[in-house]
Write a protein that binds this DNA or RNA. Structure first.
Length: 416
RNA sequence: GGAGGGUUGGCCGAGAGGUUCAUGGCGCAAGUUUUGAAAACUUGUGGGCGCAAGCCCUCACAGGUUCGAAUCCUGUACCCUCCGCCA
């Protein structure tokens, strides 16, 4: 959530930011109104509590009688305050994080900015296949078995497909450990508080997550949820910041209603594996770490020699959490287009305030800034690798960086 | 699954209805001293509002009892130990 003081002191500025994000700025007035009513009632109850504390210091007939009056009055006011408190928090949660000033203002996806392109889009002397055909012919991806056992949107990786997944994780971990990240394997499920706190809606129309019946648990959509939660309710030391984690987890998404050629095969699936970067920084350190995350994503994808482009989201495509966000889109010959493979966001103190992650700076405690970024999501990486590295005979060359983890240079047809 | 024991500030740990304003220690921060550091000493160190004085909240969470609850009662979560089962 956003800082209430920012709204109180500068409502017009907040409204402008909310408007840029294409959210309805009237939530800001709603918050202010509820805040005012809440404070009025809070003042009343606090005054009664003060008196109660005062008279409980000395036992007398008179004080006991007055104490009974106060008790009755508080029993009336406190439930009202609680209701108002609830409405206020709910309204406040609807105010999105403000975009940074220099983020391009735009309505949505169409107005995102391409920052740069890297690599040569491969020119094939034959007609290239998509990863679904390649995967089937090489006997490394089995969508039919996935559908039979778990339903549409699930898949089996086998043979070099399975090795490729593990290799990407192994290489990704090694890569980030060398850059000073702490490798960490997180739970694949989390309590509601943590996905709400990171901005994932567990229930209702927009729900993209799977939840566990009769429990408070949901399958995580990204390790961002469990990594952000790792330090929930803690006060970190300033000198320990930034803390950078390389998280490994499975990710589960319902992807309801997402069909069509752009969600073919591995592109939009219910389960995939991801190595995620996550950082806790000071108030002042987040922009630098965000640029670092983007640079690491680029270095990683360059090392796989996959052509990509970098997109900076315009204000309308940032979502509620982010103040700035970049995506990497890898070239996918099967789509004859770029497809999103990574996303890195600076969520400033927005998630930290929800989850109570602070740091101590001398006498002060401040909310940390949190950042997340994909290093590699195995499913989409496999698409990019198979499709870009395919050969005329249907085989696929293994990117050099992965060869030591797979133990071979080339994936060949089973019959060959 | 069964039986016990626990949860107090950044950490450790006292506290068992009103002399508590949550002792004390460690750590951390600032200051004094020092050429510099260490040590020592002093001060500060849960959250909110406030220029301040001060006020409210806070002892896992949620209810309850009471004029008054960290303390008593109920429920929930989590942790630990032992037994059983198990990859």
């Amino acid at each position: 959530m956003i800082d209430i003081n920012l709204i109180r002191e500068n409502p017009e500025k907040v409204k402008e930011g909310v408007r840029r994000k294409q959210y309805d700025p009237s939530v800001v007035d709603c918050v202010l109104e509820l805040d005012k009513r809440r404070l009025g009632l809070l003042q009343q109850t606090e005054e009664l509590r003060r008196e109660r504390n005062e008279i409980s210091k000395e036992k007398s007939e008179e004080n006991i009688a007055r104490g009974k009056e106060i008790k009755a009055k508080l029993q009336e006011l406190e439930p009202q305050l609680k209701v108002l408190e609830g409405e206020y928090v709910e309204a406040l949660a609807e105010v999105p994080n403000l975009p940074f000033e220099d983020v391009r203002v735009g309505k949505g996806e169409e107005e995102n900015v391409e920052i740069r392109k890297w690599g040569e889009v491969p020119q094939f002397s034959f007609s290239p296949k998509d990863h679904v055909d390649l995967g089937r012919q090489l006997d490394i991806i089995d969508f039919e078995a996935g559908a039979k056992v778990a339903g549409s949107g699930f898949y089996y990786l086998k043979n070099e497909g399975a090795l490729l997944e593990v290799a990407l994780v192994q290489y990704g971990f090694q890569f980030l450990v060398k850059k000073g990240f702490t490798p960490i394997v997180t739970p694949d499920l989390a309590k509601e508080r943590f996905y709400l706190g990171t901005g994932y809606q567990p229930h209702g129309e927009e729900a993209q997550t799977f939840t566990v019946i009769d429990s408070d648990l949901g399958l995580i959509a990204t390790a961002e949820i469990t990594l952000a939660g790792y330090h929930a309710d803690e006060v970190l030391n300033k000198k320990d910041l930034p803390r950078k984690y390389a998280g490994y987890s499975h990710c589960f998404r319902q992807e309801a209603g997402a069909y069509g050629k752009y969600s073919k095969g591995l592109y939009r699936v219910h389960q995939f594996t991801k190595v995620e970067m996550f950082a806790f920084t000071t108030l002042y350190g987040s922009q630098k770490v965000h640029e670092e995350f983007l640079a690491l994503e680029e270095e990683f994808w360059k090392s796989l020699e996959i052509p990509y482009r970098v997109i900076e989201m315009c204000t309308g495509d940032l979502g509620a959490q982010a103040a700035r966000k970049y995506d990497l889109e890898a070239w996918m010959p099967g789509r004859k287009d770029y497809g999103e493979v990574t996303s890195t966001s600076n969520t400033t103190d927005y998630q930290a305030r929800n989850l109570g992650v602070r740091y101590r700076d001398g006498d002060e405690t401040e909310y940390v800034h949190t950042l997340n970024g994909t290093l590699v999501a195995t499913s989409r990486a496999i698409i990019a690798i198979l499709e870009n590295y395919q050969q005329e005979d249907g085989s696929v060359v293994v990117p050099e960086a992965l060869r030591q983890y797979i133990g071979k240079d080339k994936i060949i047809l089973p019959s060959a």
